[in-house]
């Protein structure tokens, strides 16, 4: 089965909210999280989605 969508990376500032799965990027503050998300979006051609203020995911559509 081909997956149409896939979470390629998780970017968060709150360590307690995450565990395993996709590559995880821990950031110190929301500004850093935003920058990392923007960079990753450009690098892997995915879309950065915000699930909450402290949690971003990069999804390939």
């Amino acid at each position: 089965m081909d997956l149409e969508k896939k979470i390629l990376a998780v970017i968060t500032t709150n360590e307690s909210k995450i565990a395993g799965g996709a590559p995880i990027f821990l950031c110190d503050d929301s500004q850093e999280a935003e920058d990392v998300a923007a960079n990753l979006e450009a690098i892997i051609d995915g879309i950065a989605h915000a699930l909450s203020d402290e949690l971003y995911i990069i999804v390939k559509h």
């Binding site: 935003e34 879309i47 950065a48 971003y56």
Partner: peptide
């Protein structure tokens, strides 16, 4: 859709 980055 969901757009995460404020810049975008």
């Amino acid at each position: 859709m969901n757009i995460g980055l404020p810049e975008r």
